[in-house]
Amino acid sequence: MSEHNHEHHVSTAGQLWAVATALFILTIITVVVAKFISIPPPFDVITAISIALVKAFLVAAFFMNLYWDTKFNTILLFMAVAFFILMISITLLDTMYRNDVVPSF
């Protein structure tokens, strides 16, 4: 936002409640979808993770204030996510292509 650098953003109580309400509703949706609507795999996992990502976006953007914060903090968060994806990708390249899973693992 084009706010003056020296003023911190103050969210209104209504904004914070709106974000929390959205998070509550998304929690109900994810439970209902998982327990009462049978989506064939792998789309059940994709749906659950997508809803979790939307919730994570709401928390990071509006509770952690990244939406109004300096962009550098957002870059840090994306760096963390990027390195996490790198970590699981390289690990799966190993574990998914083994002929024998290590015994007792």
Partner: peptide, 8 residues
């Protein structure tokens, strides 16, 4: 929560 509890 979804990863541990909501796998059917």
């Amino acid at each position: 929560f979804p990863l541990l509890y909501l796998i059917e």
